[in-house]
Nucleic acid binder design. Structure first.
Lengths: 178, 178
DNA sequence: AACACTTATATCAAATCGATATATATCGGG
DNA sequence: CCCGATATATATCGATTTGATATAAGTGTT
């Protein structure tokens, strides 16, 4: 599943410009798939040449002309076919946790700060999601929102309960360096 | 933090070939950062030209010559400097959950299967991690392992408790299609 | 004997990321 | 009323990453 497929999927909710698709990625999928202009605009161009979306240009004075994309019948078929395929396994990437794998080389104070910041960012994220969750119209979006909250809460809990392990490693490293 | 930086980090644990670094990514970091040969070999080449690692070639008959990389003093300094920078925020990508955001367009049976498969893959992963967790030598690796288990357990719990939301959406979609 | 897995290198096209460029409108605060 | 921040709207571009492929031989299993 690539950006092209997800653009198709988002267009099933209605016509949109590239800019609006970017927003839809943020509003509906940001938790599990983020895409920037650098991948969205090329994707829409390819989809257009493949005939999976159509594009009409709306002239605007004083602004770049709007290009409004619509999914075609071929596009709907292609999208459903893509959805039949087994999805790739989930991927998680955390620079913070990667940093912590080298805690024994780092000052204990820095390690503690990095953990504090991560917990803080999760807490902030939970707060945002909690606010959004109730406003979501569809059940699937509620599900996703709740998923994010549940997973992040358990991550915070784990970090609070076990951060001493990492902090101990950093302290040991500092002593060894002396 | 890119593959280059993480190669440097892994080389702080001892000299290694590109092949061994790939394994180290799998053994130590797979949960939070996976890299393939296509990024590791170019990374090692760049690090070598930058003088952050050195490389000695061990001739082997009947096999490609081993190239054993060692981190240099410059490399150690560069790595620690990189570790000082604030890590980017965590990224999560799930094709399965992305699929579920379009549940209203899919057969309910397919939606259920996708959820079953995801729960199964998490359960398998937890089992593997549980086995590895005890064998890990360092506290930081234990921490990471435990993190993976805790987060995936809560994800399974949430999906079991709330999958009916998504499955309801798929059923509604099927009815609407009639 | 057959088959799969491990060791070991490396490249390449395609996809993606992250930053940047361009231009105007709008909206709130000082 | 002006200033800065945010929103609208396009797009490109270098650097990085992904995922597949190629090569070649040893090792282990049934």
């Amino acid at each position: 599943m690539d950006v092209k497929t997800l653009c198709l999927g988002l267009l099933t909710f209605g016509d949109a410009t590239g800019y609006e698709i970017k927003k839809a990625f943020q509003d509906r999928l940001s938790m599990l798939y983020d895409a920037g202009y650098g991948s969205i605009y090329p994707a829409l161009n390819k989809l257009t040449t493949e005939g999976l979306v159509s594009c009409r240009t709306m002239a605007q004075s004083k602004r770049p002309d709007k290009k409004i994309y619509s999914i075609t019948l071929d596009g709907q078929i292609a999208f459903l076919k893509e959805m039949e395929r087994a999805p790739a396994s989930d991927k998680f990437r955390s620079e913070t946790l990667a940093t912590l794998m080298f805690a024994h080389l780092l000052p204990a104070s820095h390690v503690s700060k990095v953990i504090d910041d991560l917990i803080k960012s999760y807490e902030d994220n939970i707060e945002v999601l909690s606010g959004e969750c109730d406003m979501k119209q569809s059940l699937s979006e509620k599900f996703l929102c709740g998923y994010g909250i549940a997973v992040k809460k358990s991550a915070i809990q784990y970090m609070q309960d076990n951060r001493h392990l990492i902090e101990a490693e950093a302290l040991l490293g500092e002593q060894a360096a002396e």
